[in-house]
Design a protein around this nucleic acid. Structure first.
Length: 646
RNA sequence: GCCCACAUAGCUCAGGCGGUAGAGCACUCCCUUGGUAAGGGAGAGGUCACAGGUUCAAUUCCUGUUGUGGGCACCA
């Protein structure tokens, strides 16, 4: 005699158990037709599942987020069906839902080519159009084992072995295909159809590279073709702001075979790079840091002493290993900074020492890991190490969080989330130290009311950390800043300070980076701004164009004047029409375009327009200089709005 | 490191079932001196990533290497 409570609070009672779909049908035939599943007392169930007791029920349709996930999950099963028909020897592994779609891992040693993908997708379309019902059956364990044994699905059998406590599992069948799943799934294939297979790649059984390799096929799936199309368009948009593409188009940097994973910065890219570095230098000085600089190449003995050789030799570039004294390029700045701290005797009066180093480090990466500026082999970190007393620890971390958020806001990132990563299984140091360090970080998160969450087990092997995740202009997340409370390196490298009591004490050491790798951060910035940098970062801030040769002397004089004022101005005196010049420099995303013709020369004025097209009318060179100096400030990231306010 | 692709002019790309290649833009020169997103003409430009192999002949086919792209694994 179940009584069903619906989301609007209304109740319906029924004489005997009935399915979720039955309830939907009772509410209305339209709802029944679009029912995908139901949420019963907070957990998702298939539409065919019976309701035997009183419960609250929410019908899930494609409009719900859960509905979309169900569609994606079922499309993965559709992929499975197509694969098994076309490649009967393939063994299905797992097919989960991911952001925007799904994938399926498949054991199929010959591998799938792009051509296979098209073939599979074609078959999926045929299957989706065939108007097939999906039938769920809760199946006793031994029967499920028998089913998958008969079908040669070795991996499904292993998955069953992984859940010894489960006595019956949901098997979903459509036509000749059977898959095991927690569900729910769509009740019928008419809900499927707006999908596309997007990529094929490799993966590993249980995600472990020492296990056998698997094939993974990625797909995207949506409620309808309109959503699918919109998604594919979003992908195109993201492609347009790809930093590698923009780096080429805007002449910022290039890569070449002679230096894999190391950018050649062109003048415009280096202006960007320098602007960022200048900005950070000013910032850290203002926040009480000292800046140091340590050697690039240090002896292997030193790296053995610090422990890096033991742990990271695979990723270290070694110089002349056969020589009597071997050296390696530094992969990290911390040991060098510690060496500076160790010079002389430190008193508690000297602490905290906030030591910044814009140190260039080199890390040899696995061949498949490199990726434009996002993963390079030689890069500069905006690194710092804070040496402090235990009593100072939390305040120092609080100050760092303040600095980090200030920098992000000025760079145009307002949506910042923090993850507290705690001790991993493989680690060094005592549990007592880990307790202390983790507690300090958590205290800070609470005290500052950061938007934070726990990421258990994801800390570095030597320290727990706060990681800062930025959300960019198109919603992607980038992990950039990090704060790591390290109780281990001070021990290992034996650093000490003299306390108030005259005794030697061990300082705490906090590693911290805001941008992380400058190279990578520039990649993020390029994509965030789509190459449209705010005035204070734009490599070229102003382009001066003459209309005919007659204005060349005046244009040159104005150019000089702007350069003298410290403005990044360029001059275009080419024999081209002004419309042509404007088009080119607009495409080069130069914020301010200045035109000088006879009228301007006569009145000693400049005709100014914004990249976005607004005409700012005429102004004197001095007025333009003042405008730029006021607008080109960190944090001032919207020139049209700034101009509007003037 | 693993899976699947890719590498042709400065850039974006076409081409060829084996007979050393083409377009647009950029570049150089000429005409044009034009007021806010492409004025016109001519010219120059390539060891078809690199190394082997097959072949009378390889940019094209095969193998390997390097690099790049999408993922996996890794990421102090």
């Amino acid at each position: 005699m179940p009584v069903i409570t619906l989301p609007d609070g209304s109740q319906r009672s029924y004489p005997e158990p009935l399915s979720i779909l039955d309830v939907a049908a009772d509410i209305g035939p339209g709802l029944a037709k679009s029912t995908l599943a139901g949420e019963l007392d907070g957990s998702l169930h298939d539409a065919c599942d019976l309701i035997t007791t009183d419960a609250s029920l929410r019908i899930i349709t494609a409009r719900d987020e859960e509905g979309l996930e169900i569609i994606r999950h079922s499309t993965a099963h559709l992929l499975g069906q197509a694969i098994k028909q076309l490649y009967p020897e393939a063994k299905m592994v797992i097919g989960p839902v991911i952001e925007n779609g799904f994938y399926y891992d498949i054991h199929y040693p010959p591998g799938f080519s792009q051509h296979d993908l098209q073939r599979i997708e074609q078959r999926m379309r045929e299957l989706a159009a065939a108007d097939t019902a999906v039938v769920k059956r809760m199946t006793p364990r031994d029967e499920a084992v028998a089913t998958f044994s008969a079908r040669g699905e070795d991996y499904k059998l292993q998955l069953i072995e992984d859940m010894p406590e489960v006595q019956s599992m949901g098997l979903y069948q459509h036509d000749d295909y059977i898959d095991m799943c927690r569900g729910p799934h769509v009740p019928h294939h008419r809900f499927l159809g707006s999908f596309k297979l997007t990529a094929v790649s490799g993966s590993y059984w249980r995600g472990d590279s020492s296990n056998e390799p698997l094939q993974r096929i990625y797909g995207t799936a949506w409620r309808n073709d309109k959503e699918l199309k919109a998604y594919l368009q979003r992908l195109e948009e993201a492609e347009k702001r790809d930093h590698r593409k923009l780096g080429q188009q805007l002449d910022l940097f290039h890569f070449e075979d002679s230096a894999p994973g190391q950018p050649f910065w062109h003048d415009k890219g280096w202006l960007l790079y320098s602007s960022l570095m200048d900005y950070m230098r000013r910032k850290v000085r203002a926040h009480g840091y000292i800046e140091v600089h340590t050697p690039q190449v240090l002896s292997l003995d030193f790296w053995k002493y610090t422990g890096h050789w033991g742990k990271y030799r695979e990723n270290m570039f070694v110089v002349d290993e056969s020589a009597e004294t071997s050296f390696a390029l530094k992969p990290m700045n911390c040991p060098g900074n510690v060496q500076i701290f160790k010079q002389g005797v430190k008193s508690y009066r000297d602490l905290p020492v906030r030591m910044a180093e814009f140190g260039k480090v080199f890390r040899h990466e696995a061949s498949g890991a490199r990726h434009g500026l996002m993963r390079v082999q030689g890069f500069t970190q905006d690194d710092a190490h804070i040496f402090c007393t235990p009593a100072q620890l939390e305040d120092e971390v609080i100050a760092m969080c303040g600095l980090i958020n200030e920098v992000y806001a000025e760079l145009g990132f307002t949506d910042v989330k923090v993850k507290l990563s705690t001790r991993p299984d493989e680690r060094i140091g005592s549990d007592a130290d880990w307790d202390l360090a983790e507690q300090a970080l958590e205290n800070v998160c609470r005290a500052l009311e950061l938007d934070w969450s726990l990421n258990p087990g994801d800390g570095a092997f030597y320290a727990p950390k706060l990681d800062f995740h930025l959300h960019d202009a198109i919603g992607r997340v980038w992990q950039c800043g990090t704060i790591q409370v390290d109780m281990n390196l001070p021990n290992r490298l034996d650093i000490l300070y003299t306390g108030e009591d005259g005794e030697k004490h061990r300082p705490h050491m906090v590693h911290r980076a805001i941008m992380g790798s400058i190279e990578r951060f520039l990649g993020v910035l390029i994509e965030h701004y789509a190459g449209d940098f705010p005035l204070w970062l734009a490599p070229v801030q102003v382009m001066i164009m003459n209309i005919t040769d007659a204005q060349q002397p005046y244009a040159r004089a104005v150019h000089e004047q702007l350069l003298q004022a410290g403005i990044r101005a360029e001059l275009d005196t080419r024999n081209e029409k002004v419309g042509f010049k404007i088009r080119e420099h607009t495409l080069q995303k130069i914020p301010l375009l200045v035109v000088v013709g006879d009228r301007e020369v006569e009145q000693q004025l400049l005709s100014v327009r914004l990249k976005q097209g607004q005409d700012l009318g005429s102004m004197t060179p001095a007025a333009l200089i003042e405008l730029i100096q006021q607008a080109a400030q960190p944090g001032q990231n919207d020139l049209p709005a700034f101009v509007q306010q003037q």
